[in-house]
Amino acid sequence: MKAKKILIAILPLVVFAILVMVFKSSLNKDPRELETKLVGSPVPSFKLASVTNPEVILTNDDLPKEIFLLNVWGTWCVSCYAEHPYLMKFAKEVPIKWVGMNYKDAPKDAINYLNKYGDPFVYSISDVSGQMGIDLGVYGAPETFIVDANGMIRDRHVGVIDERVWNSVIIPKLKAIGWEQN
């Protein structure tokens, strides 16, 4: 009987401890980071012009046949300016291809941007209307999709990729799907 009383007395404490743990785990999560339903499905089909060569029409067949990164950017996107130097650095130092997706931008502005700050992309897809962005579930540029050799989306990162994110988030995720840094 006494044991039962002690148990009942402890119960609120246990409930409190569980709640603390639940709330604690949420503290470290960014509520703006949303899941994507696209993990495990192919890059949505597109047929859009290249930013730098407007006469070239790009489709899914033009995507690299290896693990690559698809970066959504725009000249209207303030954070993209912060991210750009990192992209230049990674593109130079790390043997992985970056495909750009220029989201809701004027091609003229996009070309100026690449001329001024450098072009880390093998090519940039020009999504002037924003339809491809919607098909990708883009809600906050910059966003980076990890795509495998079969054109399947394996992961997504929303927000700026800097040195820290690159080493602690992107590289481990790339390695997890079999990418090797030579």
Binding site: L34, E35, T36, K37, L38, I134, D135
Partner: peptide, 8 residues
Amino acid sequence: MQKRYGDF
């Protein structure tokens, strides 16, 4: 919409 942006 759900297919693109999730249950959210």
